[in-house]
């Protein structure tokens, strides 16, 4: 029974991992650009939610979309101001550029918000829910559930709508897409906006049950990298499966071998999977 409880908690955490990673996989798969600042996007979303609550007294119904809007703007600005230019250079330029951005965001947050850990009050989405012998925190349940819905929604938009087809067309062949009357720059800016906005939702949801600090992004971005790579670059369903899987593995290994070793197992499994499937679970070579 405890084992089932652990697995369900893992799945709920995994759904949030999946959401903030699907933002990254969209960007990464679309443009083949590595974004080292992704974790710091999550961090900014968490602070956006926090300040919406403490200064404007808005509840989660408002601050979750609020964080999405803030991050959408950030994503578009980062694309137009930085990524559009470094994407033309070698991969090393992308590392330089996005890592520089990560440092600026992280330490600007340090400077503006101080290094203290803050968190939203527990009672914001209060209580626990008992269901079939399982005890679940409402905030995690809502966070995980919403994350799952948005990730699936993103997958549907990508595969079932005209907009999604255009985005994928640009990803596949920029020049051919241009000949079809699609504007690649506009599509890629949109992809950055949408990718960042879903990261914003994920950040606001994580803020419901996680501490907030300027450096929280560092560990989160490593998880996002592993999820995206494990799922296959550009694959939203891949990110979903990988995110849920990693959530469960973390929870199980924390319970069975101890919390300090939870990430050891995650990284080890990641390496093994890549060895067997170099393109990730659902990626294309």
């Amino acid at each position: 029974m405890i084992l089932l409880q652990v697995v369900v908690s893992g799945l709920l955490m995994g759904a949030v991992y999946a959401l903030f990673s699907s933002g990254l996989t969209l960007i990464w798969g679309m443009m083949n650009v590595v974004n080292f600042a992704h974790g710091d996007f999550v961090m900014l979303a968490m602070y956006a939610a926090f300040f919406c609550f403490t200064m404007l007294h808005l509840g989660p119904i408002f601050f979750v979309p609020g964080a999405a809007v803030v991050l959408f703007v950030l994503g578009v600005v980062v694309y137009l101001g930085l990524v559009r230019h470094v994407a033309r250079g070698p991969m090393l330029a992308q590392i330089l550029g996005t890592f520089g951005l990560a440092l600026v965001l992280r330490y600007a947050a340090f400077w503006a918000f101080s290094a203290n850990f803050v968190s939203l009050p527990d009672t914001l989405v209060g209580g626990t829910i008992d269901f079939a012998g399982l005890r679940l925190e409402a905030s995690r349940l809502i966070g995980g559930g919403l994350a799952l819905v948005i990730t699936l929604g993103m997958h549907l938009v990508l595969t079932r709508t005209m907009l999604g087809s255009r985005l994928l067309a640009v990803a596949e062949d920029r020049n051919a897409a241009m000949l079809m009357g699609i504007r690649p720059d506009r599509m890629q800016a949109l992809a950055w906006g949408v990718g960042a906005a879903s990261t914003g939702v994920a950040g606001a949801l994580i803020a419901l049950f996680f501490y907030i600090s300027p450096t929280v992004g560092e560990s989160l971005s490593l998880i996002a990298f592993v999820v995206v790579c494990l799922g296959g670059f550009g694959s939203v369903p891949g990110a979903l499966i990988a995110g849920l899987g990693i959530g469960v593995i973390e929870a199980l290994s924390a319970y069975l071998i101890g919390a300090v070793y939870q990430d050891v197992l995650v990284y080890a499994l990641f390496l093994v999977v890549l060895w067997v499937r170099p393109q990730g679970l659902l990626g294309k070579l």
């Binding site: 930085l82 033309r88 992308q94 330089l96 990560a102 992280r106 330490y107 600007a108 340090f110 300027p214």
Partner: peptide, 21 residues
Amino acid sequence: GITFIIYGAIIMLIARFRPGG
């Protein structure tokens, strides 16, 4: 952390304007 803001901004600007280093 101001060190890292400046450091980060400079490498970001170099990548932005001179991707080849």
